[in-house]
Nucleic acid binder design. Structure first.
Length: 542
RNA sequence: GCCCUUGUAGCUCAGGUGGAUAGAGCAACUGCCUUCUAAGCAGUGGGUCGAACGUUCGAGUCGUUUCAAGGGCGCCA
């Protein structure tokens, strides 16, 4: 008995066919019962399909029960309008423990899908520290990748560096002025420059590294300074993300996309039939597909809008052979979705080739007031400060435990004050408690058949463990890391109840102990796997 | 004006393809540490699921309308 729900589905399909009703496994929905009176599992097949064969639901249900194979089932009841409730034999449930222990780190892992997914996220301009919004995107993006991988997909994490736009020019100008100020020149930093402290720091570093070997009047000085600054900013970003347990497989640069006149070639060779001139600019007929307005790709001054290189970049990614591209973007990129999909559709890709996961903006609240985060002014708190103040586990858990679509306020005072009551500790504590029990019982035997389980808390926990593989699938399908955290809370609660009510180590009753140790071991495995899939550590002691 | 997202307990949020009395954490209150970690457990109180219609055996979930909040509709990125 590897999968209890699938097994029940098969039995129902078989029973229905005996009655001359054709059902497939997909027509049958098995739910974990919410109330104990309703047994362990329930199905609404009779309600759903009774009308097809002209019977009333309760009548159909009772015929199904008559016909079904009752192996592993202790009792079946009809309830309410026609639900069928299954009460399972304990043996049938207990068997899962052995499977979990055998599979260990791989329990819950999906089969290899042979499906390649590229997930692009964060993609911040290298002009300053990452802030809370990036932190949320990093936590969500990285967790989506981990879930995909665990579910059996091939995943590439990618970071796109927009290093050809005017933000980079602004970075260079800001560095230049900070450098001049260091030299004692009386120059003011303009309003639209980057005012954050890190610009000053990088200017200082530049001054040290080049120790007098640069000439502010030389032609390539500003270019050298700008590239130096960008490199430093990017290194900083990479380091902060690593601290946040987020590592990228590929960093792509806009300058590389633009190399060798590539953008122009693509525009002429692949988009000629969809482009037209107007007022001296070149437009793409995106309205032929999903957009409500045609978009400019070349400005009247001959330079590209951000859009055209971005299209090329997406085509480059696709040329590497991915089956799906996922962009994790801030909600202010809503307008971007349909125009990019339209551009890809011009090249024959389906609109499902690119999926955009919009992450709602984080509002930073400090002392009851909203603080506008801005790279320009340097206001707000950085990813690094967040990790230092709140901790990586708590921060990641916080961001991931809300659906990406939820608008969320980050109250700094509250986060600091309540960092110790973060739900993540509830889950980690459950893991630590199990670790300790297993450590203390090293010399005792473990019964992987878990023959002696049967108490309420044990069975509740067992049912939750059984749910894990399905939860992973569900989270992958919906790209919803919060589905995992919801599961983790449920699992932790069941573990704590089990721990409190069912004393594991009892040297007077070694048979019960052996079964409970097996359950503890299995539960610890599932908790660890679940935490791992959202990038949160599973400590053995707290 | 058009489009997207959101609206569920005092607060922050969950509620797979519609299902049986709507859940969790925090906050409030009541019990529980001589025994594996009390960062815990058990329990109480707290809800017209923004509002109104509709679809059906059944709606927090689907449809229409409406109210409110945030975002998007650049030859900015």
């Amino acid at each position: 008995m590897m999968n209890i729900e699938q097994n029940l589905k098969d039995k129902i399909v078989a029973a229905a066919s005996k009655l001359g009703v054709v059902l497939t496994s997909n027509d049958v929905i098995i739910e974990k019962s919410k109330a104990v009176e309703h047994g362990d599992y329930a199905t609404n097949v009779a309600l759903k399909n009774a009308s097809k064969i002209g019977k009333n639901p309760r009548q159909f249900a009772s015929e199904l029960i008559e016909a079904i194979d009752k192996d592993g089932i202790s009792k079946i009841e009809i309830a309410g309008p026609g639900f069928i409730n299954f009460f399972m034999n304990n043996d049938a449930m207990n068997a899962i423990v052995k499977k979990i222990i055998a599979e260990g780190d791989n329990y819950g892992r999906g089969e290899k899908k042979n499906f390649k997914i590229n997930v692009e996220f964060v993609s911040a301009n290298p002009t300053g520290d990452l802030h809370l919004g990036h932190a949320r995107c990093a936590a969500v993006g990285d967790s989506i990748c981990r879930i995909y991988q665990f579910a059996g997909y091939d995943v590439t994490r990618e970071f796109y560096v927009n290093n050809a736009g005017n933000q980079i020019a602004t970075l260079g100008k800001s560095l230049d002025i900070r450098l001049r100020q260091l030299k004692g020149e009386k120059v003011e930093l303009p309003e639209d420059s980057y005012h954050a402290q890190d610009i000053v720091d990088i200017a200082k570093q530049f001054d040290q590294d080049f120790a007098g070997k640069y000439d502010t009047s030389a032609g390539d000085y500003l270019k050298t300074l700008t590239e130096y600054g960008m490199k430093k900013e990017l290194e900083k970003i990479e380091k902060d993300l690593a601290l946040f347990r987020t590592k990228f497989d590929i960093y792509s640069f806009e300058t590389d996309v633009r190399k060798d006149n590539h953008v122009q070639k693509v525009l002429e060779s692949k988009f000629a039939q969809y482009s037209y001139q107007q007022d001296g600019a070149t437009f793409l007929r995106t309205t032929d597909f999903l957009d409500d307005k045609d978009r400019a790709v070349v400005k009247s001054d001959g330079s590209y809008t951000y859009f055209m290189p971005d299209i090329c970049y997406h085509l480059i990614k696709l040329s590497r052979g991915y089956d799906l591209l996922v962009d994790v973007l801030g909600a202010d990129h809503y307008g971007y979705i349909n125009r990019m999909k339209s551009a890809l559709m011009m090249q024959g890709y389906s609109k499902e080739t690119l999926e955009v996961e919009l992450v709602q903006i984080v509002r930073l609240i400090k002392d009851g007031k909203e603080v506008k985060m801005s790279k320009r002014t340097g206001a707000g708190i950085s990813l690094r400060e967040l990790c230092e103040e709140v901790g990586v586990d708590a921060a990641r858990y916080f961001f991931v435990s809300r659906a990406a679509s939820s608008h969320l306020d980050f109250d700094l005072n509250l986060a600091l004050e309540q960092s110790s009551s973060n739900p993540v500790y509830y889950a980690q504590y459950a893991h630590a408690r199990l670790s300790k029990v297993l450590e203390l019982a090293k010399d005792l035997e473990i019964d992987e058949n878990a023959a002696k389980l049967g108490q309420k808390q044990e069975m509740d926990l067992l049912k939750t463990l059984i749910e894990f593989p399905k939860t992973i699938e569900n989270a992958a399908k919906n790209r919803g890391p919060h589905i995992i955290t919801t599961y983790i809370q449920d699992l932790a609660s069941k573990i704590h109840a089990f721990y409190t009510e069912c004393r594991v180590i009892d040297r007077e009753h070694l048979d019960v102990t052996a079964s409970r140790l097996a359950l503890a071991k299995a539960s610890r495995i599932v908790m660890k796997n679940a935490l791992n899939v959202i990038g949160v550590s599973a400590p053995d002691a707290m």
